[in-house]
């Protein structure tokens, strides 16, 4: 199921900029292992879903997969063979804005090597470089 918000204030949004690094969601908070973004990008709802499916299929219902990102931003586009002008295009898909450091997926309840293999599969579905991280329990 591709994710999208239930209610929004405005249907369309401007592109915006993604400066700097992730100031929050930059550590493993729910599971034991995580996949951290090393670059900034828009991650589409389809890519998030592909990652989730890849992880859950690999884990065979063992463990738990946590999604730490949500596609809040609508992206609009104009139909093919349309002349310029006549207003902004219609929303086509939804994206999550990801900055370096953001933990995108987490896995808990499985061994480290299993979690690593699952998250490698998720990383292949992502349009950016990612790295595998572990939860930091102590200081």
């Amino acid at each position: 199921m591709v994710m999208m918000p239930k209610r929004v204030k405005y249907r369309k949004s401007q592109r915006g900029k993604m400066k700097g690094n992730a100031a929050r969601s930059n550590f493993v908070a729910f599971g034991e292992y995580g996949l951290q973004a090393l670059e900034q990008s828009w991650i589409t709802a389809r890519q998030i879903e592909a990652g989730r499916v890849a992880a859950t299929h690999f884990l065979h219902r063992e463990g738990k997969v946590y999604l730490r990102l949500f596609p809040h931003k609508p992206v609009s586009s104009k139909p093919l063979e349309t002349r310029m002008g006549k207003g902004k295009g219609e929303p086509e898909f939804w994206v999550a804005r990801v900055r370096p450091g953001q933990v995108m997926f987490e896995i808990g309840g499985v061994e480290e090597d299993v979690a690593k293999q699952a998250l490698v599969r998720v990383a292949h579905k992502m349009p950016i470089r990612c790295r595998f991280i572990k939860r930091r329990h102590s200081l």
């Binding site: 591709v2 239930k6 929004v8 405005y10 929303p91």
Partner: peptide, 15 residues
């Protein structure tokens, strides 16, 4: 069940 849940577009609050 999943297909039933999926809305085509989100509700717009301002509208």
């Amino acid at each position: 069940e999943i297909e039933e849940e999926v809305p085509a577009a989100p509700e717009v609050i301002t509208e």
